[in-house]
Amino acid sequence: MLSKRIISCLDVRDGKLAKSVKFVDTKDIGDPIGQAKKYYEDGLDELVFYDITASSDRRDIMIDVVSRVAEQVFIPFSVGGGLRTVDDCSRVLLAGAEKVNVNSAAVKRPELISEASKAFGAQAVVLSMDVLHVDPSAQIPSGYEIVINGGRTPMGLDAIRWAQRGEELGAGELVVNSIDADGTKQGYELILTRLIAEAVSIPVIASGGGGKPEHLYAVLTEGKADAALVASMLHYGEYTVGEIKAYLVGRGLKIRMVN
């Protein structure tokens, strides 16, 4: 049986680590490579690097970050942010990432998912989706809407439908990020995560809202997620990877433990 994965997301801006709270007021908090190495040594299962650099001419800095991470971190990691074409994806994979993480660009042009999946295999394509809770409507029957541009632009697209479409197009995994929960540390959006996990047959990674190990337990059981993404609870040193994992093992989950 597979272990439930604990994944951390490092937001990188201009080559430096940042953590967004409700997608506004991001502040730099450190060096992504050093942080990645520390988490790797602490037993983290996987990493995501999200490039939030605004200007596209700074993208080379990100490629440099990716290749330096790959020299020191021997667990799978994905890279996202600003990937619009198969060529963009190819660059980060060649730099050493296992997977690419596509989000807004895939909403605007869904073929990006199928093109990347065909070029690199479904296992290399993670579809990340930012989701906002809205009143259910004919257009958004589930009451969960896809938003882009860091949560600012609603797309009139139902999150459940988009998740299923993503799987059909060849995504190998989904990151379901709740804009409502992101940065609150009040727990993951369990209903949303579960709805999507039950609607697709690819792994679902829950994102947004993790503040305590109990929150991870809830989303990995009740929320039916295969993995949970943690950011601030690790980045600010409130918990270590080992503490989170020990808690989950204590609650009876199958988790990969390292010494």
């Binding site: 597979l2 272990s3 994965r5 479904a122 296992q123 190998g172 995994e173 047959s201 690819i202 792994p203």
Partner: peptide
Amino acid sequence: DPTLKVPHMGWNA
């Protein structure tokens, strides 16, 4: 088992 997904992806003993 429908809860087991293919590909088998992740950490296993």
